[in-house]
Design a protein around this nucleic acid. Structure first.
Lengths: 338, 338
DNA sequence: AGGAAAACTGAAAACGTTTTCAGTTTTCTG
DNA sequence: CAGAAAACTGAAAACGTTTTCAGTTTTCCT
């Protein structure tokens, strides 16, 4: 059942069928109706491979995601998928690991699947314009703050929160309560730019509160994974350092921290306050409830797709969209003990 | 950069390039090496649209998933994606909501995307052979027990745990400890067959322990969502029923239950024991750690793909693969108070 | 060494679309 | 009503692969 059969059946050329299929304006209404009827009667469905080959593009956008285990990224990812299919596009997801390069993986994905555009989700993105040019398709960076690296802010599209400022805000919440000895729980800064940026926010918030950075209070987990975060927190606690609060750069890591604190008999928030960034669903159900800056994950995904589709349509330059977090007050905050 | 360029560059015909690309045996080792080198040097990536068109198939499999919010399904989904791309296939995911029909959605997906096969993940699957025949491609049911409905067990492929038996086992753990008043926390049984099956396991475990089912101890949440589970648990607790344990049919719901219990001042496990099924990562970090029957989510995804690919390759009938859970002992189990 | 089989190779024809471009109608204008 | 513009249509050439089939080598056997 091909376009040829439809052509024969309805007595017009395949060109005309193609035109009807693609909503070209220059086909008589009467003919269009006839063709549509034929398509209906023959249950014809266009072959998308042939279509893509003819068009030299695919109506497919790719999502390169680093660290799919992360519940927050999952939420964004699903929002992306929903929006993509709402727009009658397809999505392919490509998971990358810690030793893989987002741009290289993205480029190969684009070439092999003939993607129209790309979304980078949850990793690092620090490339030169020349490197970026190799991609050949528009893209949107999602969950990265694009305020660093060798690229100008306007060089590419992004949908993001200001990781630096939000981290600053989180830590300021702690200093405002009177905390001086604030630890920070980080993922590796190798893969994830947010780790670096949020750490910077932490540093500057301390500084602006007149607190000197204590390197002993930096807890760096091997990854963003909750298991790694727990291990890191555990071994930090064993050292018996003096501290009254923890800033966790991600909810999942914060959950691990609560558990680790509990394991060594420290009470949250009496012995240790805790604040995180992300706002994943499950962190509403920790005991006590995690206080966190909630990122609008669904909106982030939806907007990323919108931005990409706009760029594709208008061939316009780029677009930066900054979203805001909202404080979700849980029960992990208290004044430091005297 | 097409196959033609590679042919010219390496001095052989495009046919030979194609053969190398597809691992045909009849190409001299020396030539193969030369071609591979050329491919490498030119950074050539085959055009998958053209490839699909030539082959008349797509090397794409679809995943129809109900309830993507669920962390367990997410884990399976990512395992599927990994295995699919490891096999040089592509995956398209299709999320469906509560008022959508898996088979209908699957069928339309197959037609429009020319899919080679389908995986159904996390919902209900109860169709007649005639309905199934409309699909036209092989498929695997994942996370459904195929021991009910109008179909014979061997009518289609599946990778699953025995939801009934595992639920039985979970509840037996509670009755063995001496619990008599055991509540069950369910998702809706409309969309999700596992809810129904695990509930059956609960009922029969009670019966075999000589306990009469108390309908007042059935907590049915509106969905599998953690928020809905919390609401359901909360309103159940308000009623002040007498019970000493809860069997939660999913980890996420169990986490909600712990929180709800804590909110009304009940201690886990002293006042109420708790056991669940799923074994998602975060449930290792609840306080106390959730005791649960861990489903091998990664394996489940991987195997589902393997089974599907085998069926596709051999055109053989079908294959049922039952996986086992493993008890992860946390701290939510205790003998009932005297 | 000679012939046959086996191993390899490439030209050309698919695959089912879209797109270009050269028509052919129809409609409009004065 | 002639001529030009606009509206429509179709033949044929892409698009980048795979596959078929007819060669051409090489290897093996006597």
């Amino acid at each position: 059942m091909t376009i040829k059969d439809v052509a024969k059946y309805s007595g017009v050329s395949i060109t005309t069928i193609s035109r009807v299929l693609n909503n070209h304006p220059d086909v008589r209404e009467e003919v269009r109706a006839k063709v549509l009827k034929a398509i209906e009667e023959l249950h014809y469905v266009p072959n998308s491979s042939a279509r893509d080959l003819g068009k030299m593009q695919t109506d497919t956008i790719g999502v390169v995601v680093r660290g799919v285990g992360n519940p927050f990224l999952n939420s964004v990812l699903h929002a992306i998928e929903k929006e993509v299919s709402r727009a009658d596009y397809s999505m392919v997801m490509h998971q990358i690991g810690s030793n893989e390069d987002e741009l290289a993986e993205g480029a190969s994905l684009v070439r092999s699947k003939r993607l129209k555009g790309l979304i980078f989700l949850g990793g690092r993105f620090d490339y030169t314009p020349e490197q970026i040019a190799t991609l050949g398709v528009p893209f949107v960076c999602c969950t990265y703050t694009n305020t660093f690296g060798s690229l100008k802010k306007t060089a590419y599209s992004s949908v993001y929160i200001d990781d630096y400022a939000e981290a600053f805000r989180a830590v300021k919440t702690l200093t405002d309560l009177g905390h001086k000895k604030i630890a920070v729980l980080l993922g590796t800064t190798d893969d994830h730019s947010i780790s670096e940026l949020r750490f910077k926010g932490y540093c500057d918030a301390l500084k602006s509160a007149g607190i000197v950075l204590d390197k002993d209070l930096i807890i760096e987990a091997k990854s963003f994974n909750i298991d790694d975060a727990f291990k890191a927190a555990e071994s930090f606690l064993k050292k018996g350092k003096d501290f009254t609060a923890i800033f966790s750069i991600a909810d999942a890591m914060g959950i691990a921290a609560i558990k680790a604190l509990h394991t060594v008999g420290l009470n949250v928030p009496d012995d240790c306050s805790l604040i995180a960034i992300d706002g994943i669903q499950v962190s509403k159900y920790t005991i006590p409830t995690l206080t966190t800056l909630v990122q609008p994950s669904k909106q982030m995904g939806t907007r990323a797709v919108e931005v990409l589709l706009n760029v594709l349509k208008d061939e316009c330059g780029s677009c930066q969209l900054k979203l805001e977090t909202a404080l979700r007050e849980g029960g992990t905050l208290a004044k430091p003990k005297a």
